[in-house]
Design a protein around this nucleic acid. Structure first.
Lengths: 135, 135, 135, 135
DNA sequence: GTGGTCTAGACCACC
DNA sequence: GTGGTCTAGACCACA
C-alpha cells in the first residue's frame, strides 16, 4: 500500500485553491480520462491523509462531496469506490464540460480588456507552446 | 455628479469574488484600457459606497491596496487619483499581461484532461460566439 | 498559552502611529533579530486581539499586509507563519537596513538646522547614555 | 514680490509629513538659525499659497498654530511677523532642542534592533558623507 | 480551531 | 470635502 494516494493526487499546498477542491477535481479528472474506472476503489481517507500530509477531515470532506455528487459510492467496510453509473471509460463530452467554465471566464475577461478572439487564440497558442517546451 | 461610480464599477454581489477584489480588478482594467488616465480622480470612497450600496470600508480597502500597489496616488484632502507613472494611454501589452495567468490555467487544465490545443481553441471559439449572440 | 502575544508585541496606545503599523514593525523587527524564525507560527489574530485589547480586525489587517509584503505566509486553518524565504537567522544587514531611513531623516534635519556631524554625534551619544541610565 | 515664499519654504508634496507641519517646522528652523529675525514679516497667506500651490487654508492653519505657540505675532492689516520675544539671533540651544526628539527615536529603534551606539554612529557618518557627495 | 470579508457607525487628520 | 483608523459584531471558508 505504498504511495497509492500519491499516484492519484498531487496537491499544490499554497495555490490558493482549497485542498478539498483539488482532490475533488482530480478524482473527476481521473474518472473522465478513464484512469479510474467504475467499481474501482479509492485509497482510504487515512492513507491519502497520511501520504499527502493533509488533515483527514479534508480528505473526508472531498469524498463526501463526491458521494453527494454521485461520482463515488460508499461500500460499507471497504471504502469509497467509483460509482457504477459514473461516466464509463473515456468520456470526451464529460472532459470538455470541465473546460467550459474556465473558457467562459476567459471570454468575459477578454471582453473587459477589449481583446478579440483572434488575439486571445494567438496568445493561448503561444503559451501552450512555451509550456510544452518546458517539459 | 450622478452615477459617476456606477460608470466605473459594477459589482457582482455574490460571485464568490470579494467585493474589494472586484473593485481593484476593475480599476486596473480601466487603467489598462485607458478609460482612466493618469492624474484623473476616482469617485470618492463615500460616493462609490453610496451608489454601489456597499460599506465605505470595503471601498476604502480597495483604494488603499491599489495605492500600496502603486496604481493610485493619495492626494490629501482631495481624494485618490491615478498615479502619474501608471501605464499611460492604452497599453496593449499591459492588457495582454492581465490575460496570461488565466490562459495558463487553461493550458494546465486542458493537459490534465488530455485535451489538445486545437480542440480547446475550437471550444473557445464556440463559447465566444454563443456569448456574442446573447448580447 | 499564556501571554504569548504580549511576549511579541507591545503597543503604545496613543503614539500617533497606527496600531496595525506598530504590529507590522514589530513583526519585522523580530524576524530581523531572529526572535521569530521562518516556519514559526505567530499567535492567532484572536489571541493577540484579546491580550492587547484591540480589535481583531486591526490585528488581521497587520497580518494581511505582512502577507502581501511576503513576510508572513498563510497556512489555511492553522494560522500565520513566518515565510520560509524570509530573512533566516539573525541578519545584521537587514537590521541595519531598517535603521537607514531614520538616519537619513537625522541628516536632513541637521542640515536644515546647520548642525554638523560632530555635534549631532555628540548629542546622540549623550541621549544614548541618558536613556541607558534610566533603565 | 516674486518668489518671496519659495525663498522660505520648500514643501515635499508627498513625503507623508502634512504640509502645514512642514511649514511650521520650516518657520521655526528659520527663526532658530536667524534667517528670520524678530519683527520681520512673513509672506502673506495668499502669496505663500499661490507660489507653493497649496490651499490657503493650509497656510493659514500653519500661521495660526505658530501664533498660538508664540512664534508669530499678528500685526493687523500688515500680516504675520516674527514675535519680538522669539529666540533672538542664532540660538544654538534652540536648534539642538529641535534635534532631540528625532535622536531619541534613533536610540529606541536601535535598541529594538540590538544595534550598539558605535555601529549606529558609524552608519550615520556613512550616510552623512554619501548625502554630502550627492550635492 | 484558523483567517477573510463585510457591515454599521464613530472619530481623526488633512485640505 | 477627502481618506485613515478603529471598534463591535456577524458570517463564511478552510483544516
Amino acid at each position: 500500500m505504498t504511495d497509492k494516494a500519491r499516484a492519484y493526487f498531487q496537491i499544490a499546498a499554497s495555490s490558493g485553491v482549497p485542498i478539498y477542491r483539488q482532490l475533488i477535481d482530480q478524482v473527476k479528472t481521473h474518472v473522465a480520462t478513464g484512469a479510474l474506472k467504475p467499481g474501482e476503489f479509492l485509497p482510504s481517507v487515512r492513507q491519502v491523509a497520511a501520504e499527502l500530509e493533509v488533515n483527514p477531515m479534508t480528505v473526508s470532506k472531498a469524498y463526501s462531496l463526491l458521494e453527494k455528487e454521485g461520482v463515488l459510492e460508499f461500500a460499507r467496510g471497504q471504502g469509497m469506490k467509483i460509482r457504477e453509473g459514473s461516466a464509463s471509460g473515456d468520456d470526451l463530452t464529460k472532459r470538455e464540460d470541465q473546460m467550459v467554465p474556465l473558457l467562459k471566464e476567459v471570454v468575459v475577461k477578454a471582453s473587459q480588456l477589449s481583446l478579440g478572439p483572434e488575439k486571445v487564440t494567438r496568445m493561448l497558442g503561444n503559451i501552450w507552446k512555451r509550456e510544452a517546451d518546458h517539459e
